[in-house]
Simulated assay, not measured.
Amino acid sequence: MKDNQVNIGLTKQEAIVLFEFLGRFNEKNNDGLFEDQAEQRVLWNIECILEKDLSEPFKKDYNDILKLARENVRDSETE
């Protein structure tokens, strides 16, 4: 790892869920949420990185893939 980089490990399913969230989040005007535009830039960059690394969002059955990923990432309910 280079001194100027931090790597974060995600499972494929976590990456799919995060990509979907960032896509929706970044489409909205969230200007009041950020203290500095750099925070918004970082989220845009993460979305771009995931878009390059994931092929699933471009598949016909993406909605099914996303649904399964969400089910597997979600906390299991305890009784």
Rank of each mutant, 00 (worst) to 15 (best):
G23C: 06
T11R: 02
V6C: 04
E51A: 12
Q5Y: 04
V42Y: 11
A38D: 09
G23V: 03
L50A: 07
L66Q: 09
E47A: 12
K67F: 08
N72A: 08
Q5L: 04
N63C: 04
S55A: 11
K28W: 00
E39F: 09
E79I: 10
L18H: 00
A15E: 00
N7C: 00
E20C: 07
D36G: 04
E39G: 06
Q5V: 03
D75I: 14
D61G: 08
D3L: 12
E71V: 12
F21H: 07
L50F: 12
R41C: 05
T11G: 02
F25L: 03
L18M: 07
T78N: 13
L18D: 02
P57F: 11
F19N: 07
D75Y: 15
M1L: 09
D75G: 12
F58C: 10
N4I: 06
R41I: 09
V17C: 05
G9A: 11
I46V: 15
F19H: 13
T11Y: 03
D64W: 04
E56G: 11
D64K: 07
I49W: 12
E47N: 13
T78S: 11
N4F: 10
S76C: 15
W44I: 12
E14C: 02
N29R: 03
D36F: 06
S55L: 12
K2C: 01
R24F: 01
D75E: 15
D53I: 11
E71G: 10
V6W: 05
